[in-house]
């Protein structure tokens, strides 16, 4: 019982410790927003902008 509890605790701590920031920052949404702004600033057409969005770095 105790061991299982510890394992859970450690897992939870690690998970939250490692990924909190990444989870919290909406990377995909930020990329979308960046692409929309880049389209406007560089006056690119929508078609050009749509393709690279599918790629995940």
């Amino acid at each position: 019982m105790n061991r299982a509890l510890y394992a859970l605790l450690i897992a939870a701590a690690m998970l939250s410790g490692c990924v909190t920031i990444n989870i919290y920052f909406p990377a995909a949404a930020a990329e979308k927003a960046a692409d929309r702004i880049i389209d406007e600033v560089w006056q690119l057409k929508k078609e050009q902008g749509a393709k690279p969005e599918g790629k995940q770095p």
Partner: peptide, 22 residues
């Protein structure tokens, strides 16, 4: 541990919510 899991779930949920639009 349950509390931790709940917290984690909340974090994931808030992240999912945040993945909308900026």
């Amino acid at each position: 541990a349950l509390k931790r899991i709940a917290l984690l779930a909340a974090l994931v949920a808030s992240a999912a919510w945040a993945q909308g639009n900026l």
